[in-house]
Every structure is written in structure tokens, then in C-alpha cells.
Design a protein around this nucleic acid. Structure first.
Length: 414
RNA sequence: CGGGAGAUGUCAGAGCGGUUGAAUGUGCCGGUCUUGAAAACCGGUGAGGGUAACACCUCCGGGGGUUCGAAUCCCCCUCUCCCGGCCA
């Protein structure tokens, strides 16, 4: 959630920044107006409440002195009536404000490039050079079918389209990758955490999936529960509604979970193969830091994901997302795109974001600095999407005869 | 799923329906004492909003209700613990 006070105090500046993310100025103006009106209305209400409290305190005194309380009661009834009236207005304003406020995306950092979509993202650097093939490299689904590694048809039979089944080498490789990634991250100081794959509404609200993106989530019928779209949700919400101690920070976590996404709105995209599934495995990094350390931790997380790809021998590049391509909660995002020789393209395999205090404000994650409570910064990043890593290994390590060699670092995990 | 108990500040734990936002202990911070520390003693210490700072308002799991007034009474929900059933 954006800082309403900041919006009120420096409207032009905030509006300018949010324009980068495509937010309409009318909405911001309305938000600001509501905020001011609500403040006035609250003052009115609180004034009456103060009167009520004042009068109520007279009762014991009157009784002691044996005075009649009937007129006092009358007076209070009148005040109460007015309170009820003003309260209703406050409630309505609050609801209205909440709807607006919860649907405004995060303010992008200054360094975020202007742009509308992924075309305008800015490449930061390339790591490792793609291998030269002396044959035409195949796409992963073709390799998978020949090796009997991935069963797309039966995945669909079991659930629906965009589900698949891993078999043989793919199944083993998937498991090896998860273990390798977790170990790798742990060595870099991220503590391993294993969390639920199902969370409640409050958690989804805390990280920003709700209320705006309900249609992307799988919801459990008859329950206010959802399948997580990323481990970012449970990992970040671990500390929802908590005030952390100064010396607990930073908290660096890594965890493996399955992720579930409806992929609404991506009909027709990546329908072939395993790039875009309703269920996929991901090893995630989540950090909770003091504001002054979040940039440093952000770099560390990007480096961690990039080094992971490097040790796996996978060529990739780092891309800074432009304003238009930035996710709802992110102030800044760097995507890691892995080289897929079969497609002849770099494809997203990891995304590291700093949400600054956006999620912290929603989820009320604070820490104590001296006597004051301050909002933390939260960061998240994939380290890496496991299925896509599997694909990348298949395509990059394929041999002329259709077999696949295994990256050196994974051998001890198989 | 059935039976019982409970949900209060960092934690533990009080709280006849009325100056109780909350006793007491503990933890933490500051001070006195000490070469230093411990002990002892003194002071401070919940959250959110609001304010220049006060004032003031809200919050005792969540939501309703009774009352002039509710942490305290009533109803619903959620969660936790104990007992039983079922089960990886």
C-alpha cells in the first residue's frame, strides 16, 4: 500500500512517479481528496466521542451525590445519535479509501526506466556465452518426448491443460535441482524454511495478491483459502503483524514450494511445453531488512540467483524492468533471463524485486528502532523457477543424438 | 468430527459493569552503587491515529448485542490447549 501521507504531502512528485506505472492522476487526486475528507470527518467524530466519554464519567459522581441522572442520559442519547451518524460516514469513507489505496501499485524507484512493456526493459549485462551447436538444437518439449522425460498428455488427463508429468531423468533432475538450489542459498546465508502451500486472505492481502489479482489465484472452494502463487506469500507473511527486534534484521530466507497460478489472461502464450504451467516448482528467496539495507540485500539476491545459473553453466542476462512491466508491488525489479538455444531466445527464469515498504505497510511488518516502530523493507526473488531451469539444462546440454549431459555441480545430487 | 478449558502488554499473569489502556512479576532501556560485572535500589517502557508538542480518539482474538457506561454480561465466528474418535 502506498504511503497516504506521502501522497498528501507531495502529491505532484508521487503522481509523477506513479505515472511511470500507468496510474491515472484522477485516481490519485480522488485518493488524496478522500484522505483529507476522512481526516476532517474523523476529527468531528472523535470530538463527539470525547464529549461522550466526558459525560459518562459524571454518572458515578451524580450517583454519589444522589442527583438525578435522567437529564444526563438524555444528553448522552443525543450525542450517541450524532456519533452513530458520523461513524457511518467515517466507515463509508474508510471503505472507499481502502478500495482505492489497496489497488494502487507501488511507487517505482527513480532508476526504473520509463516504458510500456518488456520491449522497453534495459539489459544490464550478459553472463556466459551461449554454446555453438554443430546441429540444430531442439526445443525442450521435443527432447522430452524422445527421452520420455515429460508426459504432457497425461498431465492434462489428470488435471487440465497446462499440467504435465515429469518422468525418469526429468523427475530426478527436478528433485536434484531443488536440493542443489536450497543448499546453494543456505551457503550464502539464507535460512531454509518450509511453509504451507495454502494461505488465507490476510496473507494474500499482505503481499498484494489481493484484492486486485483474485482471478490469478486458485481458491479453495467453501473456504477463505488460496493456493500460493509463489513462496513469497507465505515467507513474507511469516512476519505479518509483528514488530521485530532491531537485531533480528536482516532476515534472509530461502524455501522451496510448488506454485499455483491460473494464468488468466495468458491464453495462447507458451501453450507448448513446460514454460507456463498452472503448477510449478520454485525455490524462492525472501528478505526482510531495515530500509537502509534493502539495496544492498537486493544486489546480494540478484547475485545469488545469477551465480546459481553460472554454476549450472547456463548463459543468461540481467534485465532491469521498465515501469510498465514492473509488478504491482515492486519498486524495482531485475529479471534474469536464461538462454534457450532451442527457442533461440532469452526467457525469464528469475525475478528479483524490492518492494520497499509497500508490502510491509500492508502486512504491518515493523521493527523497533529505539522507541520508534518503523516499517521494514521486503524483498523477494526466485532462485530459480525449477521447471524452467530443467528446460534450460535440457536445451543447453543436449547432444546431437538427443541425449542430455548433466551439469557437473548436479552430479552429487543425482 | 465429538466433549471440556481458554484467548489480556516481550513473556507470565490479575482484572466487583464506572478515572483500568489495564495490578503484579518478568524482559528491555536509562540512572545510582561498583575497578568492572552481578545483586540491590530509583525511573522509563503496548499498538494505531492525531498534534509543532500536548490534548484528544480507537484498540484487551474477530464481529454483533445489552447498558448512560463493557476487558468485564449475552450471541456468533476464529484460533489455541486438554480428552476421545479418525488418519498420513
Amino acid at each position: 500500500m502506498l504511503d497516504l501521507k506521502l501522497l498528501q504531502n507531495s502529491f505532484d512528485e508521487v503522481a509523477k512517479k506513479l505515472r511511470k506505472k500507468g496510474v491515472k492522476e484522477e485516481i490519485l487526486a480522488e485518493l488524496k481528496r478522500l484522505f483529507v475528507v476522512l481526516k476532517e470527518q474523523r476529527a468531528k467524530l472523535e470530538n463527539l466521542q470525547a464529549q461522550k466519554n466526558e459525560k459518562s464519567k459524571l454518572f458515578p459522581l451524580y450517583k454519589k451525590e444522589g442527583k438525578d441522572v435522567a437529564s444526563l442520559k438524555d444528553e448522552l442519547d443525543k450525542i450517541k445519535e450524532r456519533i452513530g451518524f458520523e461513524q457511518k460516514i467515517v466507515d463509508e469513507l474508510e471503505d472507499e479509501l481502502a478500495i482505492y489505496a489497496l489497488n494502487i501499485p507501488n511507487i517505482p524507484d527513480d532508476e526504473v526506466p520509463v516504458g510500456n512493456d518488456e520491449e522497453d526493459n534495459v539489459e544490464i549485462k550478459k553472463v556466459l556465452t551461449p554454446r555453438e551447436f554443430d546441429f540444430k538444437p531442439k526445443e525442450h518439449w521435443e527432447l522430452a518426448e524422445n527421452l520420455d522425460w515429460i508426459d504432457f498428455k497425461r498431465g492434462v488427463k489428470l488435471a487440465k491443460s497446462r499440467f504435465s508429468v515429469l518422468k525418469n531423468g526429468a523427475a530426478k533432475l527436478e528433485r536434484a535441482l531443488i536440493n542443489y538450489m536450497l543448499d546453494f542459498n543456505t551457503k550464502r546465508g539464507f535460512k531454509e524454511v518450509c511453509v504451507p502451500y495454502i494461505v488465507n486472505k490476510e496473507s494474500m492481502k499482505g503481499t498484494g495478491q489481493l484484492p486486485k489479482f483474485e482471478e490469478d489465484l486458485f481458491k479453495i472452494e467453501d473456504e477463505e483459502l488460496y493456493l500460493i502463487p509463489t513462496a513469497e506469500v507465505p515467507l513474507t507473511n511469516l512476519y505479518r503483524d509483528e514488530i521485530l527486534k532491531d537485531d533480528e534484521l536482516p532476515i534472509l530466507m530461502t524455501g522451496y514450494t510448488a506454485c499455483f497460478r491460473k494464468e488468466a489472461g495468458s491464453a495462447g502464450r507458451d501453450t507448448r511445453g513446460m514454460i507456463r504451467q498452472h503448477q510449478f516448482d520454485k525455490v524462492e528467496l525472501v528478505s526482510i531488512t531495515k530500509p537502509e539495507h534493502s539495496d544492498e540485500v537486493f544486489d546480494k539476491m540478484v547475485e545469488c540467483a545469477s551465480d546459481l545459473l553460472t554454476t549450472l553453466g547456463l548463459p543468461h542476462r540481467l534485465v532491469m524492468l521498465c515501469g510498465g512491466d514492473l509488478g504491482f508491488g515492486a519498486a524495482k525489479t531485475i529479471d534474469l533471463e536464461v538462454w534457450l538455444p532451442g527457442q533461440g531466445k532469452y526467457r525469464e527464469i528469475s525475478s528479483v524485486s524490492n518492494t520497499r515498504d509497500f508490502q510491509a505497510r500492508r502486512a504491518k511488518i515493523r521493527y523497533k528502532e529505539g522507541k520508534k516502530n518503523r516499517l521494514v523493507h521486503t524483498l523477494n526473488g526466485s532462485s530459480l523457477a525449477v521447471g524452467r531451469t530443467l528446460i534450460a539444462i535440457m536445451e543447453n546440454y543436449q547432444q546431437k543424438d538427443g541425449t542430455i549431459t548433466i551439469p557437473e555441480v548436479l552430479k552429487e545430487y543425482l
